[in-house]
Design a protein around this nucleic acid. Structure first.
Length: 123
RNA sequence: CGAGCGGGCUGCGCGGCCGCGGCGCGUGAUUUCACGCGAUGAGGAAAGUCCGGGCAUCACAGGGCAGGACGCCUGAUAACGUCAGGUGAAGGCGACUUCAAGGAAAGUGCAACAGAAAUAGACCGCAGCGAGUUUUCGCUGUAAGGAUGGAAAGGCGAGGUAAGAGCUCACCGACGGGACGGUAACGCCCCGUGCCAUGUAAACCCCGUCCGAUGCAAGUUUGGGCUCUGUUCAUAUGGGCUGCCCGUCCGAGCAGAGCCGUGAAUAACGCUUGAGCCCGUCGGUGACGGCGGGUGUAGAUAAAUGACCGCGCUCGACAGAACCCGGCUUAUAGGCCCGUCUCGGAUC
RNA sequence: GGCCUUGUGGUCAAGCGGUUAAGACGGCGCCCUCUCACGGCGCAAUCCCGGGUUCGAUUCCCGGCAAGGUCA
């Protein structure tokens, strides 16, 4: 496992209080600098029953896993999806990359390569 | 051929690649951890939490009251409010389906409006007698008919009568007794009683059976030790075991400050082999039980099944384990199978 | 995961099995006033949903749905 999971309530509160927020079409991200790349997903009861919630969590984790190798300053991330009728892997991945780009959290050398590869063919 | 009835099964499949949970083995490290390989990883309802158990703690699970649940009979079961077979009632042409199906002369309550009257009586009637020229009025008898209502003191027909009435009789119903069949609920037959009294017990209640309470956030173990201060209660005027009483057990509990220590809503156990599942056979109408053989593979804790590609088809519903079982209830796209099953039509 | 509670106009809510389903705030319409406010009159309810018991259910019973509370 290359990224760590946020588990303690203390850590959650710290990120929620001090972190920076960034928003995109399908989700919001709150992040705060830390010693390693950490991630957590926030999916409450309002998103639906357990099957639906599990689906959202899997999609978010998979989307984050595919991009986490190129995050350069290590941060703790909270991923908060927006309520919608349908959720898709492609949209989550695109919007995470979009936010990382906007907040300049991608690695410098990988940035150019990823910019050419990933987001452009989808858009 | 069409329309049904009853019962049962299944719940997209295959391959490639990246990734996740715990398990086993190996290597490096030898406390945590990292890498590789291997097999494995959500349901028929996992859901609702509506019942019943196991398990754990409360001294040993004890007594009484209160409270709650259930309620035709017999059986099955660890147990049940579940299941099986039967009885009765209601519905359907029928296969079949549905039913919280004890007690209303133990007692209490309630029955709005309408109607004369709601558990008691006479508005219109019908008939007799009296008054009156007539219209009509008064008294008495009556409950067949009308009207009201969910319900009006058995139903219907005949006799009877001033008019009527179980007043009398036949049949049906009700109640009581007896014989027979059945383990029983009950069925059926015979005899007797003119009939003694509405409904409601998913109103209180009575009778019978059962239930101690709390629930895995139960509970057990480790880490956190030393010093000081304050406070509560101390042999019952406190606290725990239950809502109350009896009975019984306990000597400490809580808060703050300082030092060391710190993952502390934490870690480990509980945590998955259990009334297990499959096959055969025997007993039983059946639920189920006995015997023999085989199989044993989710155990997470911010909480594991996903992304992409290819192929096939009917283009995939409801939906995600959290201590574990037996049921019930609710949600559910489709697909398949079974029946000396039922009804209707056509042909032979 | 366990254990509980509550659903009545837009909101807060009363309600003995038989009611025209009280009230209060708010909304709309009319009256009053030169106009506004105050005041007066009127209107608006699938009693959360589906069955059952009963002559009759917002009320009693059963099953769903939704919202909320609580725990070491």
């Amino acid at each position: 496992m290359q990224y760590l999971r946020l588990k303690k309530k203390k850590d959650f509160l710290k990120v929620l209080k001090a972190g920076k927020r960034a928003h995109c079409r399908s989700l919001s991200v709150i992040y705060f600098p830390s010693d390693a790349v950490k991630m957590a997903v926030c999916v409450g009861k309002k998103y639906g029953k357990s099957v639906k919630r599990n689906r959202i969590k899997r999609l978010l984790r998979e989307a984050f896993r595919s991009v986490q190798g190129s995050v350069s300053p290590a941060c703790s991330f909270l991923l908060i999806p927006k309520e919608a009728e349908e959720y898709s892997y492609a949209a989550f991945r695109r919007d995470i990359l979009c936010i990382l780009n906007k907040e300049k959290l991608l690695e410098d050398k990988g940035n150019a390569a990823h910019k050419g590869k990933c987001p452009l063919p989808k858009a």
